[in-house]
């Protein structure tokens, strides 16, 4: 088999805080193929952002610390890469879009300044040539009247418009991988679909692979090829999107589907009730023994509480799950 575009193996990230060590990411492994869209889902605080940010080493360090594992991108090991080499990847071969378009753009710099910067750095374009490229780019992300926007500041744009600018910045250099950390969470529902479509179209046209971090299973079903489900800093399930939707194996994944508010009206015109997963996300301060989900799991046994289940292949289609009891038996 050929090497995938990105391969993360046994990644561990710790935060050294005054209150103790936070085990934010524990033995996380997954792969992204070229041009593929991978969704990472999970509850708030389960380590999605930390995983995404650690790829380009954008976590504040200290307190963040890479405690183990490997990140290979296009055959290159990133965890041991020097700052200079890493900087050449950032914004060029790997682009990032962040959650908050309000705070992720520097309020005192113009849109044009920010967009041209990356191009000039990575591709050595002149000011003029960069501006031309950027105008075309802004048109591609469907920003009306782009030449006027270039001289505007972030506060003069709407939230959706800003996120389009963020996307334009991220894809300016036609990256091989785009990491989008909840790119639509802060936007109006009506804008969310547009922005996701835009990311989808652009990346498809450029052959860019996408890691999409999201809360929204509906979004996953629409855009992802594969899905990684995270819980308490671990991958609990990894599957092709159809497999996951037709047969979620981990009790947590099943819970997520059940917790999804079903927006299609029932026969009686009522909406299906939202079933919450009972219990709380465990603290990541102490290293957990056993399955982290066990306290919330109806099917938990003594084995679940004693022994941490490892991610193991469930079938030949590449569906993997970390549960002692997945599929009915142990």
């Amino acid at each position: 088999m050929t090497e995938p575009l990105l391969r993360i193996d046994q990644l561990r990230v710790r935060f050294d805080t005054p209150e103790g060590v936070v085990h934010a990411v524990n033995d996380v492994s997954f792969q992204v193929g070229a041009g593929e869209t991978l969704a990472i889902v999970g509850e708030s605080g389960c380590g999605k952002s930390v995983t995404a940010l650690s790829i380009l080493r954008l976590l504040p360090s200290p307190p963040a610390r890479l405690a183990g594992g490997s990140i290979r991108f296009q055959g290159q090991e990133l965890t041991s890469l020097g700052e200079t080499a890493l900087r050449q990847l950032r914004g060029d071969r790997i682009g990032m879009v962040f959650q908050e378009p309000m705070t992720s753009l520097n309020p005192v710099l113009t849109i044009g300044r920010r967009l041209t910067e990356g191009l000039r750095r990575h591709h050595g374009l002149s000011r003029r040539a960069a501006r031309e490229r950027v105008l075309a780019l802004l048109e591609r992300v469907q920003i009306p009247d782009p030449s006027r926007r270039l001289d505007q500041y972030p506060h003069e744009l709407s939230g959706g418009m800003r996120q389009r600018v963020m996307i334009a910045i991220a894809v300016a250099c036609a990256p091989s991988l785009l990491i989008a950390d909840e790119p639509t969470t802060a936007l109006d529902v009506t804008i969310q679909a547009q922005v996701l479509d835009l990311i989808g179209e652009l990346c498809e046209a450029m052959g860019t692979a996408v890691i999409l971090v999201t809360h929204d299973l509906g979004v996953v079903g629409d855009v992802a090829d594969r899905v990684v489900v995270m819980y308490a800093g671990r991958v609990v399930e990894d599957a092709a999107v159809d497999d996951l939707f037709s047969r979620p194996l981990h009790p947590y994944t099943q819970g997520l589907f059940a917790a999804r508010p079903n927006l299609t009206p029932t026969v009686a015109g009522q909406r299906a009730r939202l079933t919450e997963i009972p219990g709380m996300v465990p603290s990541l301060r102490a290293g957990v023994t056993g399955c982290a989900f066990a306290p919330r799991c109806r099917a938990a046994t003594a084995q679940c509480r004693a022994q941490t289940p490892l991610l193991r292949p469930f079938d030949s289609s590449g569906h993997a799950v970390a549960c002692h009891h997945a599929g009915g038996d142990a």
Binding site: R90, E117, G118
Partner: peptide, 28 residues
């Protein structure tokens, strides 16, 4: 500590560009 500094770093700018251009202007 602002998010947009992370954005600037994610773009592959040099630390000195991040500090002297992006950050200092915002702190002016």
């Amino acid at each position: 500590a602002e998010d947009y500094i992370r954005t600037a770093r994610a773009k592959g700018l040099l630390p000195r560009e991040v500090v002297w251009l992006h950050a200092l202007k915002a702190a002016s």
